[in-house]
Computed example of a mutant assay.
Amino acid sequence: MATWRDDIDALMFETDGQHGFCMVHRHAFRTLLRSLPAPNDCLAYFRTHEPAFQAAASAKISRKNLAEGVNFHLTSRDVARALKK
């Protein structure tokens, strides 16, 4: 389940099996969608591509060796890599 956080202008979702939260800033969505999207546009894009967002989060957790429960951000590059797979 994803939610929008106005205070940081980002989408937030819980990662599979890691118990931390992942944030994706609206500017990352701007790169992915090629326009500055509204929060609802970001949520809709996430829902459509949730497996890629989860895969990007898992890859970043592994790559950075993040401890369980740590919160982190994904960039548009992180997501774009996962979308290509």
Rank of each mutant, 00 (worst) to 15 (best):
I61F: 05
G20A: 05
I8G: 00
L74E: 00
D9R: 12
D16S: 14
I8V: 15
G17I: 10
F46M: 00
S62T: 12
M23H: 14
P39R: 02
F29Q: 01
T75C: 08
A57M: 04
S62Y: 08
A67R: 09
M23W: 09
L36Q: 11
K60W: 06
L43I: 14
P39S: 04
T15P: 04
F72V: 03
D6T: 12
L36W: 15
F72Q: 03
R63H: 12
E68P: 11
L74I: 05
R5H: 12
I61L: 00
H27F: 11
S58F: 01
L66M: 09
M23A: 12
S76K: 05
F21A: 02
H73D: 12
D78V: 05
G69D: 01
P51S: 07
D9I: 07
W4V: 06
D9V: 08
A10P: 04
K84T: 14
H27P: 01
S35E: 15
F13A: 02
C42R: 05
C22R: 00
Q18L: 07
A44C: 10
R81Y: 14
G17D: 06
S58D: 08
D7P: 04
M12V: 14
A28C: 10
L11H: 03
L66K: 08
T3H: 08
A59P: 03
A38W: 13
L74R: 00
K84N: 11
Q54F: 03
G69E: 01
C42L: 05
L83W: 03
I8W: 09
N40C: 07
A44Q: 14
F21S: 00
R5S: 10
T3E: 15
A44V: 13
A80I: 07
S58T: 09
F13Y: 05
Q54L: 11
K60D: 01
Y45M: 01
K85E: 14
F72K: 03
D78Y: 03
I61W: 09
D78H: 13
D78F: 06
D7H: 11
C42D: 04
P37E: 04
I8Q: 08
L32M: 02
L43C: 08
M1F: 11
D6C: 02
G17L: 09
R81W: 12
K84F: 08
W4C: 09
G17K: 12
A10F: 01
H49S: 00
L11Q: 02
A10T: 05
F29C: 04
H49R: 06
D16E: 15
R81S: 10
R47K: 15
R77H: 13
K85T: 13
A67K: 09
A80L: 12
T31W: 13
P51T: 09
K85D: 14
C42E: 01
